[in-house]
Amino acid sequence: MAQGLSTKQIAGRLHLSSHTVQDRLKSIFAKSGTGSRGELIARLFFDHYAGPLTLGAPAHS
């Protein structure tokens, strides 16, 4: 998803149905408090990269 893949492309790579991928994404959105792919990616970036960068700590590799 972070690579910009569509639901269909993700499903193909994981050998799952598009419906299963969409259900999993909905669950991830609910658990992370986000409502879209873009919002989830932004949350991950700011929580795991931007915060440490602004605090002077090294970013995760």
Rank of each mutant, 00 (worst) to 15 (best):
A2K: 12
Q3E: 15
L5I: 11
L5F: 14
L5D: 11
S6F: 11
S6I: 06
S6V: 09
K8A: 09
K8T: 07
K8W: 08
I10F: 11
I10G: 00
A11Y: 00
G12D: 10
G12V: 04
R13S: 05
L14N: 10
H15G: 03
L16I: 10
L16W: 14
L16N: 09
L16E: 11
S17V: 04
S18T: 10
Q22G: 07
Q22V: 13
L25V: 05
L25I: 14
F29W: 15
A30P: 01
K31R: 07
G33R: 04
T34S: 02
G35E: 13
S36E: 01
G38F: 00
G38A: 08
E39R: 03
L40Y: 07
I41W: 01
I41Y: 04
A42Y: 05
R43C: 03
L44K: 00
F45R: 12
F46M: 14
F46I: 12
H48W: 09
A50M: 05
A50T: 04
A50Y: 08
P52F: 06
L53R: 05
L53C: 08
T54I: 05
L55G: 04
L55F: 00
G56C: 04
G56H: 05
G56Y: 08
A57W: 15
A59K: 02
S61F: 06
S61R: 07
